[in-house]
């Protein structure tokens, strides 16, 4: 399925896949990292910016092929993970602005054109994320265990409805409390971050979590404050034993890399 690696350079059959734009990235820093399909990573520079690229066959990354392949979850997962691995590696060494999946140019000249065209906006993004990483924090509410009252069979329909009503009221109270906790956790973390974003709650089938996700947020945290931030996450977890506060990172600043104009 994978085409043999074409020689580096311009070819009608290949394109240049862009992973990220960095500032001051040393090629040696990503030497041991492989791109999509095991391709060699290369840098295309313009002034102080570099685009991190590798060669991809247009038979898989051309317009038609992409449209088809993006629908294939296992293909997508492989590419998405490779994309992320490269960006993680770069972000460890230099300010990095991740690009969205499947940004493909025909050749290096076209890549440079993009860097030239977007130079100011890219520089702004890199300034914003310089020295920072993204931390993902989720708040999860446990799946409820059945109440003892539910174990005994209801004596009548009315009894059943009465029980259901009181259970519903209790659960509404729980949901409200969880919402309040999520707000508290978010406010507390956001005040210790340079920036923050709330993301949609995730689907359990993809994330593997149990319970209800009431907060899924990303925080842009200066690297020298990462330890304090992690401590804060742990502290909030201990402070709110009715929920689970799940913090993960560091991530490249995906959620904070947006160009000002589109």
């Amino acid at each position: 399925m994978t085409a043999p690696q074409p020689p580096v350079g311009v070819s009608a059959d290949t394109g240049r896949y862009l992973y990220a734009v960095c500032r001051g990235l040393d090629a040696a820093a990503v030497d041991s990292v492989q791109g999509i399909d095991g391709a060699t990573l290369e840098l295309v520079d313009h002034r102080d910016l570099v685009a991190l690229v590798s060669t991809v066959p247009l038979s898989s990354y051309g317009e038609e092929a992409l449209r088809r392949n993006l629908e294939d979850l296992s293909w997508l997962e492989t590419v998405v993970r490779a994309h992320d691995t490269v960006i993680h590696a770069a972000a460890r060494h230099a300010p990095t602005a991740p690009l969205r999946l499947a940004t493909v140019c025909f050749d290096d000249a076209a890549v440079r054109d993009r860097l030239r065209e977007w130079y100011v906006a890219l520089t702004d993004v890199l300034d914003r994320v310089d020295g920072c990483s993204e931390w993902s924090v989720k708040v999860l509410v446990p799946t409820e265990a059945p109440e003892p009252s539910e174990t005994a069979a209801p004596t009548s329909g009315a009894d059943y409805l009465r029980r259901k009503k009181s259970d519903a009221a209790r659960r509404a109270g729980t949901a409200e409390a969880a919402t309040a906790t999520a707000h508290l956790v978010h406010d507390s973390l956001a005040s210790h971050a340079r920036d923050s974003r709330q993301l949609p709650p995730q689907d359990p089938r993809l994330s593997g979590h149990e319970g209800t996700m009431v907060l899924n947020a990303a925080y842009l945290v200066p690297d020298d404050a990462a330890e304090a931030f992690a401590g804060l996450v742990a502290g909030l977890g201990a402070e709110h034993p009715d929920v689970v506060v799940d913090g993960r990172g560091p991530w490249p600043p995906y959620s904070f890399a947006m160009l000002e104009q589109r």
Partner: peptide, 22 residues
């Protein structure tokens, strides 16, 4: 998790139009 990666790589990150139109 795949969910963490997908929501970032597909939904976030910089959008620059390449030569291949997605």
């Amino acid at each position: 998790t795949l969910a963490d990666i997908l929501e970032r790589v597909l939904d976030k990150g910089i959008i620059i139009a390449g030569d291949i139109r997605v």
